[in-house]
């Protein structure tokens, strides 16, 4: 698990963006108490804009940029996104076109959404006992520089799953 420094709101090197909250994920972990591994899977992660770090908490909707990254605060880990950096083509260049037909051997559009996974086994063994419904909070942090895009929101994710393995 990556340790991250506390963000000072006066720290202008970093920018606070809109915090993401997932829909509830129902999972009665007591039925699967012998799991040897637990993952959070982030499906369909967008990466078209800036690079960012997403600090992930379970069942802590009040988590923000100054929440300590500890299990006591239900912090389970962080992921990083290497952002595209905005669009530098003509109109439509960054639109993700789904390919049609089995004879199209071109690769998917570079901005096709990605997949990330955090292994949260030890954390989930603790947190899973306390609940059978989980909301995932992602606190995104980007770095400011002279080219930073003017965006308020950055976390794009199509689906979040919590998966355990026995």
């Amino acid at each position: 698990m990556k340790k991250s420094k506390k963000l000072d709101k006066k720290d202008t090197k970093y920018k606070q963006l809109k915090i993401y909250h997932s829909n509830p994920i129902k999972m009665d972990i007591n039925k699967y108490s012998d799991f040897y591994r637990a993952d959070i899977e982030f499906h369909g992660i967008g990466h078209a804009t800036e690079s960012y770090t997403g600090h992930v908490f379970l069942n802590n909707p009040k988590a923000d940029f100054n929440t300590s990254k500890t299990l006591e605060n239900n912090y389970v880990g962080s992921y990083h996104v290497f952002g595209h950096g905005g669009c530098f083509g003509d109109v439509g260049h960054c639109d993700i076109i789904k390919k049609d037909g089995k004879y199209d051997f071109r690769a998917d559009h570079p901005l096709t959404r990605g997949f990330k996974r955090l292994i949260i086994t030890e954390q989930f063994k603790v947190l899973g006992k306390q609940n059978n419904e989980f909301t995932v909070t992602i606190v995104p942090v980007i770095k400011l520089d002279k080219n930073t895009m003017d965006i308020k929101e950055i976390v794009e994710v199509e689906k979040i799953s919590i998966v355990t393995y026995e």
């Binding site: 996104v81 990330k116 996974r117």
Partner: peptide, 25 residues
């Protein structure tokens, strides 16, 4: 590979600037 890409992404973000964007890295 998932771990390697995530560490890779984090370093791009750490250096920031041109390295922090696929377009210019």
């Amino acid at each position: 590979e998932d771990d390697l890409e995530d560490i890779h992404d984090s370093v791009h973000g750490w250096v920031g600037g041109s390295m922090g964007r696929v377009v210019t890295a």
